[in-house]
Write a protein that binds this DNA or RNA. Structure first.
Lengths: 199, 199
DNA sequence: CGCATAATAGAACCAATATTCTAGATCGGG
DNA sequence: CCCGATCTAGAATATTGGTTCTATTATGCG
C-alpha cells in the first residue's frame, strides 16, 4: 500500500562508502546524496543522523571483513590457520578496496567515544566474535592461552597484516605485501613459543 | 619596543597537539585556544588558517620522529642498523605518545591533497630525507637496490613497526611490541634475500 | 610622558553543513 | 477513484565553527 522505496539501507550505505572513498572521512551529507543521486531527505528518512550513518557503514564493513575469517580458523593445523587468517587481510583489501579504506578511516575507540549512544553497544561488541575465534585457535596452537599468547596471536593475525597493507590502500597492493605479512606473522607467532625474556 | 609575545609558535603547536589528542583530528580552533588558555586571535596572529596550523603540527611531529633515525642508520652492520631503526618506532611512541598519535591521525597523501598550497612542497619532500637514509642502508644490506629491496626495507623498518604500535597508542605500549617489531622486521628483511617466487 | 609597534583579546561575522519541515508522489485496497 | 501509508523531494532553518575586525594592552625609546 505505501509508495515503494527507491533506496534501501544498503543503497545509502553504498553511497556513503563511495562518498568516503572520494572525499575522505569528512564527507558531508550533500555529497552522499549526490552519490546516491537522491535527496538528503531520503537519507534522513532511514538514518537518524550523519554520525549514525557513518557508524553503520563502519559496522557493515567490519562484518564483511569478518565473514571470511571463520572458515580459516577451522583449518586443521592451528599454525597454518593463523597464517591463513593473516593472509586474508591483504587479500580482502585487494578484493574490497573501498570497504578496506573505510575500515582504516574510523577507529573503533573513537566511534565508541563520539558515536551515537544507541550504537555504542554494537560497536563495543563488534570485535568479540573475532576475539572468540582467535582464542580458540590460540589454544590449539600453544596448548594454553596466556596474555602473552593472546597478544602474539592478535599482532600476528590482525595488527601486523593490517599495518602492512594500510599504506597501499587506495592503489594496487603488491603481492610482496602478502609474503611480508606471512613472514611477519610466522615470526611473531614463534615469539609465543619462548619465555618473555627477549632475544 | 612592541608588546612582548605571550605565545610562541611552539606554544600554539603544543596546544594544537593537546587538542588533537583530546578531541581527535577534527578539533576546532576554539578548543585549541582553550588548551592554549588564550584567545583565538592569537592563534590567527601566527598561523594563517587552521589547516596550516595542523599541517605545521604534523610537520613538527615528523621532524621530531626523524631526528632519532639518522644515527641508527650509520651503525656499522647494515642489518643491525635496519633492526635498530625498526625498534626506534615503538620506542619513540613510548617517549612521545602525543606526537605519535598525531602522526597516525593525518596521512601524508591527504595533507598533500587538502592542505594549503604554500605548504605542499614541504609536505611532499618531508619523507625524502628518510628515503635517502633508507636507500643507503639498503645498498649496504643487499649490495644493490632493486624495487623489491626498497619495498622490503620500507615495510620492515617503517610500515610494520608503525602498524604494530598503532593500536596501542593512547595507552601503555607493552614491551612485547618491541620484540614483535624486531622479529617481523628481521623476517621481512630476509625476504629480500630470496627471489620473487614466494615460499 | 606620549609615541610607535606588535601582540592580546574576544566579540562579530559569515560560510559550510547537519537537520527539519512541508509538499507532493506512488502504490494497494476498499 | 479516493484513502491511508510510506516514501521522495528539496527548500528552509539552525548550528557549528573558521575567519575577520576593532579595540585594548604592553613594551622601549626619544
Amino acid at each position: 500500500m505505501p509508495r515503494p522505496a527507491r533506496f534501501t539501507h544498503d543503497d545509502i550505505l553504498d553511497a556513503a562508502l563511495a562518498g568516503v572513498v572520494r572525499h575522505g572521512p569528512r564527507v558531508n551529507v550533500a555529497d552522499i546524496a549526490d552519490e546516491l543521486q537522491g535527496p538528503v531527505g531520503s537519507i534522513y528518512h532511514r538514518f537518524p543522523s550523519r554520525d549514525a550513518l557513518m557508524v553503520r557503514l563502519w559496522l557493515r564493513s567490519v562484518e564483511r571483513f569478518q565473514a571470511g575469517l571463520a572458515p580459516l580458523a577451522a583449518l586443521p593445523d592451528a599454525h597454518e590457520a593463523l597464517l591463513a587468517m593473516a593472509r586474508h587481510i591483504p587479500q580482502f583489501c585487494r578484493t574490497h578496496p573501498d570497504e578496506a579504506t573505510c575500515l582504516t578511516l574510523f577507529r573503533q575507540d573513537r566511534l565508541l567515544g563520539e558515536g551515537p549512544d544507541e550504537l555504542r553497544d554494537v560497536v563495543a561488541t563488534m570485535n568479540d566474535t573475532v576475539t572468540a575465534l582467535l582464542a580458540g585457535v590460540t589454544r590449539r596452537r600453544y596448548g594454553r592461552v596466556t596474555k602473552r599468547h593472546h597478544h602474539c596471536v592478535r599482532m600476528a593475525t590482525v595488527v601486523a597484516p593490517y599495518g602492512l597493507v594500510r599504506p597501499y590502500l587506495g592503489g594496487p597492493i603488491p603481492l610482496l605485501v602478502d609474503d611480508a605479512t606471512a613472514a611477519a606473522a610466522d615470526a611473531i607467532l614463534n615469539l609465543g613459543d619462548h619465555p618473555p625474556r627477549s632475544g
